[in-house]
Design a binder for these strands. Structure first.
Lengths: 224, 224
DNA sequence: ATATGTGAATTGATTCACAGCG
DNA sequence: CGCTGTGAATCAATTCACATAT
């Protein structure tokens, strides 16, 4: 019965809204780079490919940021969105699984740019332990619990094979990490206070397969 | 204002359903590898981390695949899902943008495994043209129109920088490709008969930031 | 007895229309 | 007047209860 203090911490915000806020933030950065100072919900909407209603409703979940009759100030709205999304501080991340993908992420310059600081990397493979990638040395997986508290690791990129994903997720959450960016093409289950976001290239590829295929498929007729 | 253009599906099937079907297929493959022959909606649901109602409703959009009182035959349901998802045939794909990510995808063995055949790669950079990655040679971008028809390219992985994404998408759709797997962290707009699926690691990372940050944020108090 | 398949109820998200403020 | 902010209406998705088949 969620009737009482509906004003508590932001619950009940559609996760589609969060995704769109990220798009709005990108659009604003682009507009700002072009020297634009003001923006209307209409312009923002067309750039983000949603309706203006949607833009205003999404923003309204978090407060009122515009001026009636005028619109929004680009830099102001951009700052508000960064604040809402938790992007005004650094996040300390580690990579678990230093295969091809883990190595690529360790070298990715975009991380630093967006204030995500890579502070550790882990792998089970003895031969990889001690090697350096990007700014970090690879550690053995059993160092994870101590490293999480010593280095204050807040998020982990899970880049291990499917067969190792659940065990690795258990180790990560057992060590106290509350956020997992899961690149393994599988469902991982975690305690309720841990958040998992999936980055699933193969699933996206199969969705594409479905939608391209779709036009040629006739659904079964339940005429019985 | 995007009127009428239902971005979901053409047949009224929730796109969340399509995503879940992909998960069910993975679960079934796992169960089959373990020698299981029968499965109930309950088991499938718990493995996929959804409700059994959801599993049955998702399947019901496409037909009836189970036996009352018994459940589903693993191999049969797996085959049906592959058929529904368009995964019973090969798909011919090309990569546009042979930077780090494009190169990594060209080498990725998972593509072949899932019947996605890489038939071409493109880049604007003169110095990359002619080099080989995986099974293909890099071509100049202006060869795209002829290559699409000659090689029957059906999907493209868009792995170019954000600033080049829209122009590249225009070139791709102009050449007649109907499916784009967009890895660039930006919205690309395409004609209504083209499907775009996004693989957006930075967006997932920012969603994680939001949800971890969330607990510490107090929404604005309208006492001004 | 058991587990699927499905109309109906419920919950959630999006769209709308216009009130409210600059 | 113009454009934001928001309750109300519409639309979509999920949950449920149970009839139905083996």
């Amino acid at each position: 019965m969620p009737r009482g203090g509906a004003r508590g911490t932001s619950k009940g915000i559609p996760s589609a809204t969060v995704s769109r806020l990220i798009t709005y933030l990108r659009v604003l950065n682009g507009l700002e780079a072009n020297g634009l100072e003001r923006v209307s919900s209409d312009l923002l909407a067309s750039e983000a490919q949603v309706s203006a209603f949607q833009v205003r409703k999404d923003l309204a979940y978090f407060g009122t940021f515009g001026t009636r009759g005028t619109g929004y100030t680009v830099s102001n709205l951009r700052d508000e969105l960064k604040r809402i999304l938790g992007l005004t501080r650094q996040w300390r991340v580690a990579i678990v699984g230093m295969g091809r993908l883990g190595q690529a992420l360790a070298d990715y310059p975009g991380l630093v740019e967006y204030d995500f600081e890579l502070v550790a990397a882990f792998d089970v493979d003895e031969r990889k332990v001690g090697r350096g990638f990007g700014t970090v040395l690879v550690r053995a997986l059993d160092e994870l619990p101590s490293a999480v508290s010593e280095l204050d690791i807040e998020m982990v990129f899970l880049t291990v094979p499917v067969r190792a994903a659940q065990a690795a997720a258990d180790a990560v959450t057992g060590a106290g990490v509350k956020g997992i960016l899961n690149f393994a093409p599988t469902v991982v289950s975690v305690p309720p206070d841990v958040r998992v976001e999936n980055v699933d290239f193969l699933a996206a590829l199969k969705r594409l397969s479905y939608f391209l295929h779709e036009d040629g498929v006739v659904p079964e007729d339940p005429a019985a």
